[in-house]
């Protein structure tokens, strides 16, 4: 019989895909500002896409992490209802992706590596988002970050929601937290289409293979960052320490690679994605 102690220590790997979806969406899970405060020595947020807007769902700015001067890009979901509303629940508009590219270009110019924190249900499905080219903004981001001449470390911290996540998840090292999920479509969306019943989301989550171990075995990510027992929401400090360690290790590995070689290697990695006959 499981004692309380062993239950507490039960590995999260035993959880179902749907359990992980719930953990990944937990409001108490560390969000981008928790990571900024917990990991960075200093940080200056910068705003705006220089076209129409500043998208609060996309945080961008320069900061120092373990002595490394980097550009940070991350979805901002917010932890309270007020924050959720202000940040549009982490669903970026085209303006957010264009801000990310604008500052990405700056990072390339001044040799700053980029660290991204991915946590979004998806790109915002709105009227103005479409009118301002949501599809074009995501497409451009993929093309842009694939060839950018500076190291890019991606951390999927919570929900990796489809194209809206992918737009800032192209890089040289793709790290994923143990209880994060990353999927081509939300389990609810997939269940609605293929099961004709959104309530079948747990089955869809299982079928889509969206957990960190699944993605590692599929070659879509490079490394899993362990979380404290029960999940990152139980211990922000420990979670931040683990993320910091993994990010610094990745930055150190990438630092020694000449930029042309780095971009070649990134292309080779991107080129290898897939499974076909």
């Amino acid at each position: 019989m499981a004692t309380k102690k062993t239950l507490k220590k039960a590995p999260a790997a035993a959880a179902s895909a749907w359990d992980k979806v719930k953990i990944a969406r937990d409001a108490k899970r560390p969000h981008v500002w928790d990571f900024i405060e917990g990991i960075f020595d200093d940080f200056e947020e910068l705003h705006g896409d220089r076209l129409v807007n500043d998208d609060a769902a996309m945080v961008a700015g320069f900061g120092t992490i373990g002595g490394e001067k980097v550009l940070l890009l991350g979805h901002h979901k917010g932890a309270t209802v007020e924050e959720n509303m202000a940040a549009n629940f982490g669903m970026a508009n085209p303006d957010g992706y264009r801000k990310a590219m604008r500052l990405g270009k700056l990072a390339e110019r001044f040799g700053n590596p980029i660290v991204t924190f991915v946590d979004t249900p998806g790109a915002y499905p709105g009227r103005e988002a479409e009118e301002r080219g949501q599809a074009e903004a995501i497409a451009k981001s993929l093309e842009f970050f694939s060839a950018l001449k500076t190291p890019i470390v991606v951390v999927v911290t919570g929900e990796g929601g489809s194209g809206g996540a992918l737009a800032i998840a192209v890089g040289d090292r793709i790290l994923m937290m143990e209880n994060a999920v990353y999927s081509v479509i939300s389990p609810e969306g997939c269940a609605g289409i293929l099961w004709r019943d959104g309530a079948k989301a747990p089955e869809a989550a299982e079928a889509l293979k969206i957990t960190a171990p699944d993605l590692l075995s599929l070659g879509a990510i490079d490394e899993i960052i362990p979380e404290p027992a029960g999940g990152a929401h139980k211990n922000h400090k420990r979670a931040c320490a683990n993320v910091k360690k993994a990010v610094l290790k990745a930055l150190k590995e990438l630092k020694g690679i000449a930029l042309d070689e780095l971009v070649e290697k990134r292309y080779a990695k991107i080129r290898s994605y897939g499974n076909f006959y």
Binding site: S146, L166, I193, K209, I210, L215, I270, R271, Y273
Partner: peptide, 22 residues
């Protein structure tokens, strides 16, 4: 994207965009 192929279907977006960039 073809959801029956899960995350690797999503990754084709990056693959095609990177190849077009080249």
């Amino acid at each position: 994207a073809r959801m029956h192929e899960g995350i690797l279907s999503l990754m084709q977006m990056t693959k095609t965009s990177a190849a077009i960039g080249r």
